[in-house]
Amino acid sequence: MITFESVAVRAESTPGAPDVTILAGVDLHLVERRVAVVGANGSGKSTLARLVNGLVLPTDGRVLVDGLDTARDGAAIRRRVGFVFTDPDAQLVMPTPREDVALSLRRLTLDAAERAERVHGVLARFGLAAHAEVSVHALSGGQKQLLALAGVLATEPAILVCDEPTTLLDLRWRRVVDELLDSLDQQVVLVTHDLDAAARADRVLVVDGGRIVADGDAWGAIETYRDRMAVR
């Protein structure tokens, strides 16, 4: 359960210039299992996503996840909320898939054998077992994104936030990742440009100019979004 209480985010752009407002007046209560966020480039949707796990803290207001304040309980929030970025290349830290998943498990205190078993299980579940010892650098873009998801889901977070996870992928990998996200038990907040993926969500938020301009079921919200994106 994610709650935004009159959240605003402002940032300094150039020294001396007045602050830019990135997001303002966001009041939300997200309980749906699948929430999609759509909006133009630079609309503030990535910031909205980053607020959920405390990567960005609100300038005004507060963000609560299951009652925990992202500004106060950062560590607990990040155990609860997993985050997947657009570019898996920057998210993968270790030289091989096995080691990258093992790194995620470091903070769960497991002994070496348990850890190895968990790592193998996670890689198998994501179809990466055959690539466990391959250089991360040699994986395809789609495999890298699957691995990024594996690394995040290995610790079994309750909520998963994905910031355009399929934007860099070809159609085939896009479908693989979409199906994987659909199959998860977790609550998923999906920031996307893919309206087909958004259409499958239980609730769709449209962000434009730093504000939520539409919020509702997929059908109505996506219509609003198409309207706003129409070039006149």
């Binding site: 940032a11 752009s13 990135i22 133009a40 630079g42 990535s46 980053r50 960005v56 300038t59």
Partner: peptide, 19 residues
């Protein structure tokens, strides 16, 4: 809405650094 984030010379969009 574009001027909110400044495209870097590489074309990557930098998130505005938050204060």
């Amino acid at each position: 809405n574009e001027p909110r984030t400044s495209p870097t010379p590489s074309g990557a969009v930098a998130l505005p650094s938050v204060g």
